[in-house]
Amino acid sequence: MTQTASPVRRGGTTGRRQKGPSFLMALPAVLFFGVFALIPLAGVVVLSFMSWDGLGSPSFVGLDNWFRILERDHTHNALWLTFVFVTVSFIFQAPVALLLGVFMAGAQKYRAFLSVLFFLPLLFSSVAVGLTFQALFSPNYGISTALPFDWLPAQWLGNPDIALYVVIFVVGWCFVPFHSLLYQAGVRQIPASLYEAATIDGAGRVRQFFSITLPQLRYTAITSSTLMLVGSLTYFDLVFVLTQGGPGSATRILPLDMYITGFRNFDMGGASVIAVILVAVGLTLSLALNKISGSSRMESDKAGMG
């Protein structure tokens, strides 16, 4: 760190030794990031030991919030729901996005046409998507009244047994298009010669998919999976608009639990405890994924040299 401070660089006129740009270049980013991201990150830990209703001034209460929140049924429920939400979302989104990406990268005309339309969900904000599906799943004027199938449930978002899965489907509808674009771009970078060689060797379509496409997409898969997993861990917007955590607490995942605890029940200290848990889980998850990706990248480097 000493080097950064010592040379005073004004317009690079004080001698030709220093070659790098001055720290002033990075200063605005550092300021923004420090004030509105790093300080709040520390602040959330501090607030988890404080009592605050959101308006007055916070006061120190020690571990009270932690005990209260960790013993609460809502928290256990939210932790479990979050686990289900993240896992099932991933199991649904990742394969669909991968297959769609491969599909969209195909040369056929109709695929190019379909790809144009597959993008459409990205034009809608989460709130817009939420309101759309709320109407579509309405028991009074929604899809269940339109189609003559008895097995369609009248209640989708109102049924606590299926609400979480309906929400997961809608989240997938919203985010699969972006991830399939990532995979499409990944597939387009695979050298055609690999497929030509495989075809000459008599490898079929399925074989080529598993032996060429899939391994070649591993960096894309890591990028996409990280965004998917960490993203759904903290996902708030759509769930809030669709169900507000209900019915009962059937879809009250951690971020919603945090919002309701903090901004509905005015228990900011308790909400901060939940926030710290979220940060901890999020960090662990991304570090773990980073480790996996790091090791697989080294493997690939070696493979490249061999």
């Binding site: 760190m1 959330v44 903290t234 900011m268 940060v279 999020g282 991304s286």
Partner: peptide
């Protein structure tokens, strides 16, 4: 940057990718 500052700054900023935005909303 020729100093170690660049790499350090990068590490800190990378950390920011792992911070869930929602979680810092209260502060």
């Amino acid at each position: 940057s020729v100093s170690a500052g660049g790499q350090r700054l990068f590490s800190v900023i990378l950390l920011g990718i792992a911070i869930p935005v929602q979680a810092t909303i209260i502060p």
